[in-house]
Write a protein that binds this DNA or RNA. Structure first.
Lengths: 124, 124
DNA sequence: CGGACTATACAGCATAGCAAGGTAGCTGTC
DNA sequence: GACAGCTACCTTGCTATGCTGTATAGTCCG
């Protein structure tokens, strides 16, 4: 993917940030559903996923929100190396919210793709 | 599509709003690329797309941003019935930005789906 | 002790979406 | 003329999220 740098880079970078909104919450819930995770582990897990740059300062507020909303619950357990870890698990409400969100995600994907499909000449 | 109403509805509604961020900009650019459109027409076009609720208060700020960034250019033309219309078209920079954004969109789709695919038991 | 790594948390900022409201042009009806 | 109704565009104020940077604190090891 070769794009000439400097051409509306600020706009693009900003847009990439905006697109993440909401989707990180979905990713975190999806990651927790797959297996028991603690905060720092989520950071490391999602960081290697292409397109999902994420850092501690983003994940912990998300986890706090999800806990405040009753979608996840946390259990502190001692760690073999370092401070105690806070393991997260979905509550029934969290599982239901995840289902609704995953459902909406599929709908959004179809919607966006349909607005992009009207014409297929994306190549220059 | 039966979800018991009232269960974390506020959270879900709010999340749905957040997910739209950035994606509406992509949709608008995609719609403009497909055919010449004016603001009010974009509203009517995208409003009927499932999952993409959109109103004038959202579209016009987007169009202003895109014009300020030099991604689209506008030409005023008289309308057969009503006030003059402002028709929008992609600039070369806009076409390039759209390509980058569409590219990132594909990457994001894969990333989110991969975090959701670890386990497939979404059914209750 | 002091450095490195792990783990969580918070303050402050920038930005987008949206409801609500405002302005203005054109058509038709009374 | 006066009013209603639709078209078309734009702005303001609010809210919520993501991100950078910073703080704190525990454990291990030389």
């Amino acid at each position: 993917m070769l794009y000439s740098p400097g051409v509306s880079d600020h706009f693009y970078d900003n847009w990439v940030t905006q697109v993440r909104k909401g989707l990180l919450e979905l990713s975190v819930l999806g990651a927790i559903r797959a297996r028991r995770l603690y905060g720092y582990d989520i950071v490391k897990t999602l960081r290697v996923t292409d397109g999902l740059v994420i850092s501690e300062g983003t994940v912990y507020p998300i986890l706090s929100r999800l806990r405040r909303e009753g979608l996840v619950e946390a259990a502190i357990e001692p760690s073999p190396d370092g401070p105690a870890r806070r393991y997260y698990a979905l509550t029934p409400a969290g599982a239901q919210a995840l289902r609704r969100m995953a459902d909406h995600w599929e709908r959004i994907k179809r919607a966006i793709d349909s607005t992009m499909q009207k014409d297929r000449d994306l190549a220059p």
